[in-house]
Design a binder for these strands. Structure first.
Length: 141
DNA sequence: GATATGATTGTTTCC
DNA sequence: GGAAACAATCATATC
């Protein structure tokens, strides 16, 4: 929608620094090393893609490029109405909420432990794992 | 063998 | 406020 291509444009130019192991690029500050840092939650589009990829694979078992799936997903996403996107948006919002809790706990740990980690703390809360799982049940239906 | 790349959009994050 | 990174995915290519 509208100018969402701002980054795509730049990225396409050839600056795609994959998150995987690729050095994560210039902003690597976080990529430096923070295995404890919660990963960003998938946006509505990514939530939709999770299911779309499976379906696409079934429909195109011979497909090899994830790029193709991305293109197809993006095209379909644009064709979808808000009503159709609604469930994905809601899920994404839930993920976001959970991420907020996770990131807060992560920040708290940094602030409190400052590199020194209170394992005892984490063991008791482990925060999200529990929360997340129970919370996920909500959207089950 | 290990890692980068290909594309998509949305959200987050940093300056 | 804006620009850039990063989130998932996986066969393929390159080193």
């Amino acid at each position: 929608m509208k100018g969402g291509q701002t980054k795509s444009d730049s990225i396409q130019t050839g600056n795609k620094l994959k998150s995987k192991g690729a050095g994560a690029g210039k902003r690597a500050k976080k990529a430096a090393k923070d295995p404890n840092k919660p990963k960003r939650p998938p946006s509505a589009f990514f939530v939709f893609m999770e299911g779309f990829r499976k379906q696409y694979k079934e429909d195109n078992p011979d497909n090899k490029s994830v790029a193709v799936v991305g293109k197809a997903g993006g095209a379909k996403w644009k064709n979808m109405t808000d009503a159709e996107k609604a469930p994905y948006v809601q899920k994404a919002e839930k993920r976001k909420t959970e991420y907020n809790k996770n990131i807060q706990a992560y920040n708290t740990k940094l602030a409190g432990g400052g590199g020194n980690n209170d394992e005892s703390d984490k063991s008791k809360s482990e925060i999200n794992d529990d929360d997340v799982q129970s919370g996920e049940n909500e959207d089950e239906d």
